[in-house]
């Protein structure tokens, strides 16, 4: 997965597909073995990283592939998290049944938000979504009857069945891995086919795309809905994994860290979402030892550095290297358009 699914959304030729399959197989194998090599706390962190990866896939789909800038995906993450938490806490729904409703709730809000977004140019959409991110914590606190106010909601962490010889963290990790694989499978299929091409066409040449018969209203609204749905699913995953939701964890900086993860991983890629998820989970942990503010300073510097030096992110960088050094790649993916993130209007 990491190796080939660069910026391109056009299905690659046979040899490229093989490389991609090998990459995906290696990544999945590594993900399966991983919990047995690290401590339980790390397993928990990897679970969270997985949820971020799913959220970033949603953001990449919307901002990277479709060119609709969102600086407010933390709000959809919050909707997913709170839907799951309220279902579990107030209505006693088992945790594994809350993920789909969380996705559905975020999908509906996403579509509703996508309708006015149709009329906004990129810059104003960025402004509106940033404002949405700023307003989210206050909004959540207001409905304290449902959301528990600023105290948030504490959830019971799901326990592994007694007949399984693994700890709770590993059990949760594997379940979330299954969710992640399903979402990524769906997402990459969606983006590799007709829909993905339509989204990219609308990003790069909206007028030509419309002339070719691509319905902009349908595709852009759907992109918003599906993007929100993925991020909402991710929010539910994170809420289940941490066992806690509170308004102030869904502040504007959550949305900004999604943007950071997206840019660092590679904003118009599928694989980039995974790199980005790892980045925003582990870099702050490393940097926190220096100072409370250090993670954010590093985020800011990374944003600027990637924008100037590596605008296609880690995934794009790997692809460029692969094209340069692996001869098979050149024939497979060499001719693909290497658009920069946001090379659209």
């Amino acid at each position: 997965m990491a190796a080939t699914s660069g910026l391109a959304t056009i299905p690659v030729a046979a040899s490229g597909t093989n490389w991609r399959r090998i990459g995906v197989a290696v990544a999945i194998a590594a993900a399966l073995v991983l919990p047995w090599l690290v401590s339980d706390y790390r397993v928990f962190q990897f679970t969270l990283a997985g949820s971020y990866a799913v959220a970033l896939l949603g953001l990449n789909l919307l901002t990277g592939y479709n060119g609709q800038i969102s600086l407010g995906h933390g709000a959809f993450f919050a909707i997913g998290g709170y839907t799951a938490a309220i279902l579990m806490h107030r209505l006693g729904v088992p945790y594994y049944l809350t993920i789909l409703p969380a996705g559905a709730a975020a999908f509906i809000v996403g579509v509703l938000f996508g309708l006015p977004a149709l009329r906004l140019e990129n810059l104003y959409l960025a402004l509106v979504t940033l404002s949405m991110a700023v307003a989210t914590p206050q909004f959540l606190k207001y409905f304290d009857h449902w959301t528990g106010g600023s105290q948030g909601i504490v959830l019971r962490k799901p326990a592994a069945p007694t007949w399984l010889p693994i700890g709770n963290d590993k059990w949760l990790y594997y379940q979330m891995l299954v969710v992640l694989l399903i979402v990524f499978w769906a997402g990459s299929n969606l983006l590799a086919g007709r829909t993905g091409r339509a989204l990219v066409a609308l990003r790069d040449h909206p007028i030509s795309a419309t002339v070719m018969g691509i319905n902009p209203v349908f595709y852009k609204t759907c992109a918003f809905g599906v993007s929100a749905m993925f991020t909402g699913i991710a929010g539910a995953m994170a809420a289940i994994a941490t066992g806690f939701v509170a308004p102030d964890s869904f502040n504007v900086f959550l949305s900004i860290s999604f943007l950071v993860g997206s840019v660092v991983g590679g904003i118009a890629t599928v694989a980039g979402a995974v790199f980005g998820g790892f980045f925003i989970q582990f870099i702050p942990n490393l940097a926190n030892d220096i100072s409370d503010a250090a993670p954010w300073a590093i985020y800011g510097l990374f944003l600027l550095a990637f924008m100037y030096a590596m605008p296609t992110g880690i995934a794009g960088f790997i692809r460029t290297m692969a094209v340069r050094y692996a001869p098979k790649f050149r024939t497979a993916v060499g001719e693909q358009p290497t658009s920069q993130p946001g090379s659209h209007s």
Binding site: G67, F253, A293, H344
Partner: peptide
């Protein structure tokens, strides 16, 4: 493109906030 502007401005926002903190 616009997206790059937005990303650079957000980078600035984050840096100022972090350095102040």
């Amino acid at each position: 493109p616009v997206l790059s502007h937005v990303i650079v401005f957000i980078g600035l926002l984050v840096i100022f906030s972090a350095v102040a903190g």
